[in-house]
């Protein structure tokens, strides 16, 4: 087993054991924090696919996070007020069922990623960053003025949505559900990185002319990666909204896009568990340092500076060494 695999196993063990300890020690807030970390990690795992493997520096991934959140908010708010979403041409009712909400979140964010990607992926570098950012701001300001769903104030959902066979109101059960989703997505991403698609996408980042010269279209490869990436982040948005039982335009904010990217940089770009390590560390720092000082972001900034200057592979890179091509 490589050193990176050992680190990954330790992280998974921690994600399983710490919340279980919290149940035993009756520390429900620790479970909430862990859920927050796991859900934010999922959002970053989505971005890591585009950023790490595809080299696409998207500063607009909050769009997908927000769409997932609002998919949940809209569906659940109609269900709790017993009003249909629309009556014509077909009757669509709200729902409190997580699997349906997840599906809607994934499909909606994938479609939006397809549109945003079709436009933005024709550019590169700083233009790509700016276009993704611009799309993010469009959604942000749209939801602020979207009075039907709370506008600036957001939308509260009073009871957490349900999942067949689980009581999602019990924190550890909801946590377990989120963790399973994260692990399933990680397994998928791990397979994807080694698959023919992953090989081609990874090469399109390093040598796009070569990829064209062997008969593959870098644009299409990146577009598909962007869509999958957006869909994963969208799913995370739905879970995040269910954790908070609240959605608001801040889910679309560019600060959030930045934070998701920060998780990846802290943990290690293109490393499978990079975003997970980054998100967990971020949530821990936010909690502890945030408790000590209102200026905790200064310390986060110093940490980020240190990593960018001295440890470009992020924490995983520091602990596990350089990535090996055939692992």
């Amino acid at each position: 087993m490589s050193r990176e695999a050992v680190i990954n196993a330790v992280v998974v063990a921690g994600l399983v054991l710490v919340p279980l300890w919290a149940v035993w020690a009756d520390e429900p807030f620790t479970i909430t924090l862990a859920t927050r970390a796991v859900v934010l990690a999922l959002a970053a795992v989505g971005l890591n696919l585009a950023l790490g493997l595809g080299g696409l520096v998207s500063l607009g991934h909050a769009v997908f996070f927000g769409i997932g959140g609002y998919a949940m908010g809209v569906l659940a708010s109609h269900a709790q007020s017993y009003t249909p979403l629309m009556e014509w041409p077909v009757l669509i009712e709200g729902t409190k069922s997580m699997p349906i909400i997840w599906l809607v979140s994934i499909v909606a964010s994938a479609l939006v990623a397809l549109v945003i990607g079709s436009v933005s992926l024709r550019t590169s570098g700083v233009y790509f960053i700016m276009i993704t950012l611009a799309f993010g701001q469009m959604f942000f300001f749209f939801t602020i003025s979207w009075a039907a769903y709370g506008g600036e104030d957001g939308l509260s959902i009073y009871v957490r949505n349900g999942f067949p066979g689980l009581n999602t109101l019990v924190p550890i059960q909801f946590y377990g559900l989120c963790l399973v989703v994260l692990l399933v997505v990680l397994v998928f991403c791990s397979a994807l990185a080694r698959s023919p698609f992953g090989l081609a996408l990874n090469a399109a980042r390093q040598a796009p002319e070569r990829v064209q010269a062997v008969g593959l279209d870098p644009f299409r490869l990146r577009l598909v990666a962007f869509v999958i990436s957006g869909a994963i982040t969208g799913l995370a948005g739905a879970l995040f909204a269910d954790l908070a039982r609240f959605v608001s335009p801040t889910m679309f904010s560019w600060q959030l896009s930045g934070e998701i990217m920060v998780f990846i940089i802290i943990g290690g770009v293109a490393r499978l568990f990079g975003p997970v390590v980054g998100a967990v560390l971020f949530v821990m720092l936010e909690h502890w340092l945030g408790g000590l000082s209102d200026y905790w972001h200064v310390f986060l900034g110093l940490l980020l500076l240190g990593i960018v200057l001295f440890a470009k592979g992020g924490l995983i890179g520091v602990l596990a060494g350089k990535a090996r091509a055939h692992d």
């Binding site: 998928f188 397979a191 994807l192 080694r194 698959s195 023919p196 698609f197 992953g198 090989l199 081609a200 090469a203 070569r210 990829v211 062997v214 008969g215 593959l216 490869l221 598909v224």
Partner: peptide
Amino acid sequence: LGALGAGGSPWRFFRPA
């Protein structure tokens, strides 16, 4: 990668290349 362009499809996401 060369073999993939000429004799394979890149739209496969699960099995290792």
